[in-house]
């Protein structure tokens, strides 16, 4: 089975985020990046499928030079090779643009299965995987919590609202968007990290993919990013831990009437 995993780098969870001077995105300098959380689960699922079914795992990431860190981590965990889609023209693409570039890169790969995360922790469009499926004319399913291979088809467990699930059968090739919690992701071993150094990493630019900047014209544009207005009526408590505790207990007793 040939499985492609789409990995996106996003600002590390504990980064102190600041807006850029134009107020159109965050300041990307002086923060660290990490792999988008559900994508880590998608990679783990791909590695497990390879272990049970044989085949190879190909990592695909679109982003600037720093994205190689995400790629190296994936190779160290056991992915076989990587595609790094990098071009100045790829900066700031919307989901449609990203999917368009990935579709072109994956056309010739002809994987049996593509797995993506269900949503990115930065913009959070929750669209890239599903658009990619349409562009490659693949059946898809989203928010997946289990995958079972049944010959040339798969049976997946799709999460629904309020604790409901549903099984869905899909023919291969197909695309799935993976939900966090589907498995327990592994850590890279020292041996894996060493082995990753010799694994193939192919860089592909706009020209390499035979695309023109106009093909990636955005369908939406961010005009402003800002701190949302806070609801004014939260009552905040300050002081030492003990002071705060005493004030809270007073509130819980006399206002909320819990105690």
């Amino acid at each position: 089975m040939k499985i492609v995993v789409c990995l996106k780098q996003v600002p590390a969870r504990d980064s102190l985020l600041r807006l850029n001077p134009a107020g159109t995105w965050i300041q990307e300098t002086d923060i660290s990046f990490e792999v988008n959380e559900p994508d880590i689960y998608a990679l783990e699922e791909a590695l497990r499928l390879k272990e049970s079914q044989g085949g190879e795992v190909v990592v695909c990431s679109l982003g600037p030079a720093r994205a190689q860190q995400a790629i190296k981590e994936a190779l160290a965990k056991g992915a076989d090779r990587a595609l790094h889609l990098d071009d100045p023209a790829f900066a700031g693409l919307d989901s449609f643009g990203v999917a368009r570039v990935m579709a072109r890169a994956l056309e010739t790969e002809k994987p049996d299965l593509i797995v993506t995360g269900l949503q990115s922790d930065d913009f959070g469009a929750a669209q890239t995987g599903v658009i990619l499926a349409e562009l490659l004319d693949l059946p898809h399913s989203t928010i997946i919590m289990a995958i079972e291979v049944q010959g040339g088809a798969i049976k997946v467990k799709r999460e629904l609202e309020a604790g409901f699930f549903q099984f869905i059968e899909l023919p291969l090739p197909a695309l799935l968007t993976i939900q966090s919690g589907i498995n327990k992701p592994r850590y890279a071993t020292l041996k894996g990290i060493m082995a990753a150094k010799n694994k193939p990493l192919k860089k592909l630019s706009l020209a390499d993919l035979g695309l023109l900047a106009g093909d990636l014209a955005p369908k939406q544009r961010i005009t402003r990013v800002y701190v949302p207005e806070k609801r004014a009526n939260t009552e905040f408590f300050e002081g030492s831990g003990k002071d705060i505790a005493a004030k809270l207990v007073d509130k819980l007793k006399n206002e909320a009437r819990i105690l």
Partner: peptide
């Protein structure tokens, strides 16, 4: 954060 987003196409 919140973002203002407009359609371009």
């Amino acid at each position: 954060f919140n973002a203002d987003v407009e359609f371009t196409g």
